[in-house]
Design a protein around this nucleic acid. Structure first.
Lengths: 212, 212
DNA sequence: CTTGTCGTTGGTGGTTCTACCGAGCCTAGT
DNA sequence: ACTAGGCTCGGTAGAACCACCAACGACAAG
């Protein structure tokens, strides 16, 4: 009996191609393909649709890999998630692992490595490349305290700040006093160690609070 | 006899997966795979390695799809190039077609469409989706006068403006008077119809003058 | 009841940014 | 030689931005 795999990937061509690859592996077969996390969760409502492993892309519209993996961890902890991405962004990888992915694979890998990763994940419970383990070791070092928490209201303000509006206009749009807005700004500058609005805009874009 | 296809794609997993897909098509077989344009050109020195169609990714390190396609057009005009990309960026698509690609395919497509595109390209010489032809029509329309010309010095200034530096500091870094910098700023605001520095930053990022 | 925190708002003073105007200098074209 | 236009730099005034401090009501915890 082969292990079942579900592919979640928004680029249809890649998902179909991957599907062919996986079906070529001795121990695995593809159950079905989804275009995003939302679709996956809908499918899971029927227990027959729950596979052994989910091969999950991270960058997806509607419901991305991180949200989806978190939801799976919550509702279907027995399903093993193998993350797949072009992203080498440290934070993204860590986020993905933190919400419960069992492994992380760059798209830039050999198919034999994919097969190996699937086997490892299924049989030993996890799989990590040397790169990722190095990354993990790096984060154990005593630097990181970048866990800055931004409140909803502050995030909303930041989005407004990424426009040509003045603070006065932003205050107006958010139905607050300009002074309150300045308070948000000051505390954000403090928390994120920024010097001025330009820095804030760059931060917002880097962290995808605002997509230009 | 099947038509021969070469795949040029830096993500190995995708290239192998695509390879499987193409080999599954009735009329095509994969000759070999390359990781970038440079490798492809090296291979082409042996005439046995010249295929009917090249399936080319656009975003690659070392030698990207546009450069490579231009080189092929020059040296091996009989080889048909089918471009493949996630990019929907108008300019990129047009560049690719301008240097001689016979067709343009988004990665977000069905495998049957890929097969169809290959057939069309091989047998009729070109293939375009409705999206792309619409795009082409769009560029013929008489709207565009967004061809604002920014001077080198201004572009350099803009990059500096996308940081937390004050204008005074930027002036210092560029070895100019603060007043000159203000002059650049004013004329850029005028040309691009911007209200303040925040707008400039957003513009710079949208137009890839600055990558955050 | 007291303490503390959070979200809100106001004040003051200084720095930076923006708009508009003018003036040399150099280069290219006439 | 003259002129036009581009690049550079300076002045002024006002708006926007930034830092720091204080305070009030609400609300939860002790």
């Amino acid at each position: 009996m082969k292990y079942s795999v579900v592919i979640v990937e928004d680029h249809i061509l890649l998902s179909q191609a991957l599907s062919g690859l996986v079906n070529g592996f001795a121990k695995f077969k593809v159950l079905y393909i989804c275009k995003n996390g939302k679709e996956l969760l809908t499918r899971f409502k029927d227990p027959k649709n729950i596979p052994d492993v989910v091969l999950m892309d991270i960058n997806m519209p509607i419901m991305n890999g991180i949200e989806t993996t978190a939801a799976l961890k919550e509702q279907y902890p027995q399903v093993k998630v193998l993350a797949l991405s072009v992203e080498e962004d440290e934070k993204t990888i860590l986020k993905m692992l933190r919400v419960g992915a069992k492994g992380y694979l760059l798209k830039d890998t050999e198919k034999s490595i994919l097969e190996n990763a699937l086997v490892e994940v299924q049989e030993t419970g996890f799989y990590h490349t040397k790169d990722v383990t190095n990354l993990l070791l790096g984060t154990l070092n005593p630097k990181k305290e970048n866990t800055v928490i931004l409140k909803d209201r502050e995030i909303e303000f930041i989005k407004h700040a990424c426009t040509e509006k003045t603070y006065k206009e932003i205050a107006n749009d958010m139905c607050l006093s300009p002074k309150t807005i300045e308070g948000y700004r000051d505390s954000i500058f403090e928390k994120l160690n920024l010097k001025n609005r330009t820095g804030l805009v760059i931060y917002a874009i880097k962290n995808k609070l605002f997509i230009p």
